[in-house]
């Protein structure tokens, strides 16, 4: 019970956008002119913008991790390993809250945006399509806020990440989180959710696709391109 309260409190304290606000604004979409303005941006500028928004979201995930009971008791190496491998995955899970499945739009820079707004990202368009599909499939599960909180913690605390120094300790923390999640699901009669969650490999594949697209961008542009990207983003993905 204590662990559940801690997961929920950590999640609420570090949530970037409140669910009520996202719901209230879910039909506030970009106008045709605004979409065209985004489409006219250079590929470099659009990448930088997206990297900026991803980095902001990741900073919230780091704060969430720091508040999770047991996370800061892991060795520093393992804290970094878990965040490096899992932060982007958590951001993708959180995206289902900021996604309107009825018109396939996502909250981006103040309004809801369709996939076409990201056209200037160039070849990364496939990646955008895959991310939208993932958000759509997660939205279909209609997860509550406490469920998203636990899913975030479980994506992060994963004992099978490579390069962990103390996987047993991570595994023990994960087991406690799993128990807390099961109790929550039992209490809310949502046990079926566990069988309907997308396979973990799907999140991993999306993250690999993101890094591959970034590498392709770097191959096509001078190294100075990345200088304009947020330092934390470069550290994690470049």
């Amino acid at each position: 019970e204590q662990l559940t309260q801690n997961v929920l409190k950590s999640y609420h304290e570090t949530c970037q956008l409140r669910a009520e606000d996202l719901q209230r604004r879910r039909w506030d979409t970009f106008s045709r002119e605004e979409i065209c303005a985004y489409q006219k941006k250079s590929m470099e500028e659009m990448w930088q913008r997206c990297a900026g928004r991803i980095t902001e979201a990741i900073q919230h995930v780091v704060e969430f991790a720091k508040r999770l009971h047991g996370f800061m008791e892991l060795c520093q190496n393992d804290q970094i390993v878990l965040l490096k491998a899992g932060a982007m995955e958590v951001v993708l899970v959180h995206m289902c809250r900021a996604f309107n499945a009825d018109n396939r739009t996502v909250f981006f820079e103040g309004k809801y945006a369709s996939a076409e707004l990201f056209r200037s990202l160039g070849r990364a368009e496939d990646l955008i399509g895959s991310i939208f599909d993932f958000a759509q499939s997660l939205c279909a599960l209609q997860c509550s806020e406490p469920e998203v909180a636990f899913l975030s913690a479980l994506v992060l605390v994963n004992a099978s990440r490579p390069w962990l120094q103390e996987p047993v300790k991570v595994s023990r923390l994960r087991r406690r989180l799993e128990l807390g999640f099961q109790l929550l699901l039992r209490r809310t009669r949502r046990e079926g959710l566990l069988d309907r969650l997308p396979p973990q490999g799907r999140l991993r594949a999306l993250c690999s696709q993101h890094v591959e697209q970034l590498q392709a961008l770097r191959r096509r542009h001078p190294p100075a391109l990345l200088d304009a990207f947020p330092p934390l983003y470069r550290e994690l993905f470049a």
């Binding site: 970094i80 965040l83 550290e235 994690l236």
Partner: peptide, 17 residues
């Protein structure tokens, strides 16, 4: 690993903000 991830390491070291 901490050396290669100085920013992340620093964020983790800072108190809850």
């Amino acid at each position: 690993l901490q050396e290669k991830h100085r920013i992340l390491h620093k964020l983790l070291q800072n108190g809850n903000s």
